[in-house]
Design a protein around this nucleic acid. Structure first.
Lengths: 357, 357
DNA sequence: TTGTACGCGTTATCAC
DNA sequence: GTGATAACGCGTACAA
């Protein structure tokens, strides 16, 4: 359109000169005080801005007012669809509230987490959404002590004081167990990733133990090998084989603690040629493909986007508060059951037919 | 450890005072000129930094030197696993090269793309990895003209001059078609999202047309309804039903242009109770669950992380170049075939057995 | 209604 | 070796 030269970034001063006004007027024009300027000036300034393709420098802006308009998010595993969905919610909420989001992925590595937190601190983010692995790092504690509002996603961090947004973990286990019992399964194997690393895993596991203690069903627990690779797959497969082919007569079902586990278990069961439904399978976390595997995998869907939005809400609320050290809040969500074929026991029990669908 | 008060962020000046030195010395200490300081000073400064928990303000840093050490990435759809994998590669490469990454998701919305680009410009990112939807926005052109190095991911943008990193689209179609032909399929349906929005889609589609013109097989093309929802599913299902149950005797196969299409097609085929393998299915893009659906879905896996890293490499290389307007480079990658059951035609052809596996 | 002057935290350029 | 001082681009009292 205009003859925008291949010039470098222009500054507010250049705009001012071009329009024949002072920096202040330009600044006001940009800062929402447009009404206080005469129509003449507004026109001239607007023109100059357009002609020069001027963009205010957010760095300088943040430097002055101390408000970076930046929020940070630390994600433990960006390749986990659940995390991405939550991230998506966080992102949208940020945009709506006029903040930008700096996203960091730690790949579940404490070292990377430290590094990223330092970075976010360096950019003076005004708040932080953290989906952390393991114990709170020093960096995180330091940030909290400096008064940076913090929201923990999904996992609490020991005695660490901070707002938490996540699932009602006891309730999700209850829903899962109830569904399985209702469908007639009486011998359950709960498969989880190592619970040490995340409080939500602990909470779910704990509840499973509690329910088992009530005596409605036989219950076992298998904690996955933390080291990825062939070995893990093999051990899982072996464990599942033992469970599935167990001697007892009670209908058996698997309960997967999260989406990753569901994926791994589904692979293992497939390798073992297990018929889903006959052996029950229920996974926490809904995934794109759950309807596609065998007769469909029953899941408990978390309201992922809502969780993300709630995290931002919680953050901004705290940003507005004066006594920054108000008691920490906890926001719990409830998962929604999506019943599919994997928890539908076959009517007749005639194993003669080799057909596995 | 130390008595870190709940104080606000400390500045370089405070550190200087605390250590009884000048800001300059502190700045040198941090800026890699540590050797030029006496051991005494180094000690004092180090202590003070630790005691005050000092972190340099990246905003101020960027303001002065003009180097934000920030790279930007615009992702068209963060919920697409392919995008996330590439992002993961970009992220790692950034870290290794000492840059931070500002990630923006546009949800394929040009308005959001504009907004995000403006934001990235405001933060003075030194380079941009763009996975854009549709035509180049003014914002993008403006950024390019200002000399911000740009790398386009997967899609070129018309006549727009910029480095491009992506797949060799002709080759991936060749590999796909060759595999299907080799497996005996002779009637192919190519399913794609609307090609207008992305050059890579166009390139693949074009190549499919070219191959069909060679006469080795019957070929049809179905372009998905761009509007998501029930209607799209229904039309897709109907189209596939017509194709699969077609009168001709030639073995039929579906070729899906990308991961999203594969997912949609898999759902539709399932609803239609189509036996995979008998009707072939091959998808571009590898997904977590491809081994789980029916007999497994054959895919062509893109080297996603490598693509991400290559994008950053290309970016940084251009950052170092003096004649910023060097001819634009193109980096092409090759997809890897992962054969599974969905392209394995059954040996015997006895439709009497109702078993679908 | 408009302009001047200062400070935000940092680095770079000088002097000492 | 070390330290004062001037930018960097912007917002904002304050003065006019």
């Amino acid at each position: 359109m205009s003859d925008s030269k291949n010039a470098a970034r222009s500054t507010i001063l250049e705009v001012a000169r071009d329009a024949g006004v002072s920096k202040t007027s330009v600044s006001r024009y940009l800062g929402g005080e447009r009404e206080r300027l005469s129509a003449t000036l507004q026109g001239r300034i607007g023109q100059s801005i357009a002609r020069l393709g001027y963009r205010p420098n957010q760095m300088a802006r943040g430097l002055k007012g101390g408000r970076s308009r930046l929020l940070g998010m630390v994600v433990a595993d960006i390749r986990n669809p659940f995390s991405v969905d939550v991230l998506h919610g966080v992102e949208q909420a940020c945009r709506e509230r006029g903040f930008s989001l700096l996203v960091c992925n730690t790949d579940n590595d404490p070292a990377q987490e430290r590094e990223h937190l330092a970075l976010l601190a360096a950019y003076r983010v005004e708040g932080l959404v953290v989906n952390a692995a393991g114990r709170p790092s020093d960096e995180l504690v330091a940030l909290a002590e400096q008064g940076t509002p913090l929201v923990l996603l999904d996992r609490t961090l020991g005695a660490f004081e901070a707002d938490v947004v996540g699932l009602d973990n006891a309730r999700v286990i209850d829903t899962a167990v109830d569904h399985l019992l209702e469908r007639g399964y009486r011998h359950l194997l709960y498969v989880s990733e190592p619970p040490e690393a995340a409080s939500s895993r602990q909470a779910r596991l704990l509840r499973f133990h509690e329910r088992r203690a009530q005596g409605d069903f036989d219950g076992e627990v298998y904690v996955q090998d933390p080291h990825a690779g062939e070995t893990r797959e093999a051990t899982l497969r072996k464990t599942l084989a033992t469970f599935v082919n167990g001697a007892d007569e009670r209908p058996r079902a698997l309960l997967c603690a999260n989406g990753n586990v569901t994926l791994a278990v589904a692979h293992a069961l497939r390798a073992l040629d297990v018929t889903l439904g006959e052996t029950g399978l229920l996974g926490i976390d809904e995934l794109d493909w759950c309807a596609l595997a065998g007769p469909g995998i029953t899941t408990l869907a978390q309201p992922t986007e809502a969780i993300g939005r709630a995290a931002v809400d919680s953050l901004l609320r705290r940003l507005d508060e004066n006594p920054r050290h108000a008691p920490s809040r906890r926001t719990d969500f409830v998962a929604r059951l999506i019943p599919r074929g994997s928890t539908q026991r076959p009517r007749r029990r005639e194993p003669a037919d080799g057909c596995s669908r």
